[in-house]
């Protein structure tokens, strides 16, 4: 299976590719939007800041191309960390004055991305380290075989605030409930890093690869 990793200039691409190889998939670093269609599914990685990443997506011609790939060709997409945040309508990290809602994202999962402190978190930030997840009320196959209480690796200061609670498929507790995985249709996102969450993350990535659409 060919898994396209969108290389828009940020992200721990090496780590994502390694994890996929270990799962016997074939990772392909995609450096041009035109090459996206050659893959069975797509991963939007992320180690970055929302506005910078959104700008890089725009400048590279990725934004419209990803929307087309996902909407018109139903290509399954997994966003990781900032890659998940970019699935939202808006993000406030690094936003330049203008729209108070922030910088536009890809708009696949309705919602916005805000600093954890504005979401009520008073603990030390960034939220970095291993934290346990609780799955949402509707079971999602991304978490098959992964029980509540499983620890994943997080490192972030901003978090997803989904408009529709049914899009939230997992949360964690960091002083406040934090949305850590979302899904709408064949678009998934995880705030934690499955590629760096050892065996638990492998299981999750295997679930994504095994998904009926992928």
């Amino acid at each position: 299976m060919k898994v396209g990793i969108i290389d828009y200039g940020v992200g721990n691409l090496g780590s994502v590719a390694r994890a996929l190889e270990a799962l016997r998939a074939t990772p392909v670093l995609i450096e041009r939007p035109v090459d996206m269609h050659l893959n069975d599914c797509l991963i939007l990685p992320g180690v970055g800041s929302f506005t910078d990443c959104a700008r890089l997506l725009d400048q590279g011609g990725w934004t419209d191309a990803i929307k087309q790939e996902v909407r018109a060709f139903s290509r399954p997409l997994l966003g990781i960390c900032v890659g998940m945040q970019l699935l939202a309508d808006f993000g406030t990290e690094g936003a330049i004055d203008g729209d108070p809602r922030g910088t536009p994202g890809l708009g696949f999962v309705p919602g916005s991305v805000d600093h954890l402190s504005t979401l009520g978190c008073t603990l030390r930030l960034p939220h970095v380290g291993w934290n346990e997840i609780t799955r949402g009320e509707t079971p999602d196959n991304l978490f098959d075989g992964i029980s509540d209480g499983t620890d994943f690796y997080f490192t972030h200061s901003y978090a997803f605030a989904a408009t529709d609670p049914s899009d939230v498929i997992a949360t964690t507790d960091y002083g406040v409930p934090v949305t850590v995985a979302v899904r709408r249709g064949h678009v998934w996102g995880t705030q934690f890093h499955p590629e760096k969450s050892s065996r638990a993350g492998f299981r999750l990535l295997a679930n994504f690869l095994a998904g009926p659409q992928c």
Partner: peptide, 9 residues
């Protein structure tokens, strides 16, 4: 580095 890759980096 923080501006480009996020403070967590």
């Amino acid at each position: 580095i923080a501006a480009r890759f996020g403070v967590q980096c």
